[in-house]
Amino acid sequence: MTLDQMSPQTLVQIVAVNGKGLLRRRLLEMGLTPHTFVKIRKVAPMGDPIEVYLRSYVLTLRKEDASLIEVKVVEHD
């Protein structure tokens, strides 16, 4: 499963971050590292990007980029 497929209010844990280059580095550097807990909060009005909560802050990223992040579900709300 990947982060973009998750519905709002789901708590997930990152399993792996795929992709390459600048994008992958940026995702990792923003704290989206394996084992991190991420809560999906919202989807933008036009259906993309998504809003997530991790490491006590709020981040937005595009679904296309979120699809590089493999996750496992911890909790459904």
């Binding site: 600048l22 940026r26 923003m30 809003e51 802050y57 709020v58 981040l59 937005t60 980029d65």
Partner: peptide
């Protein structure tokens, strides 16, 4: 070339 990724903080 590759645009800067859109990975943006939403500050309080």
């Amino acid at each position: 070339g590759e645009p800067v990724p859109f990975v943006l903080e939403l500050p309080a």
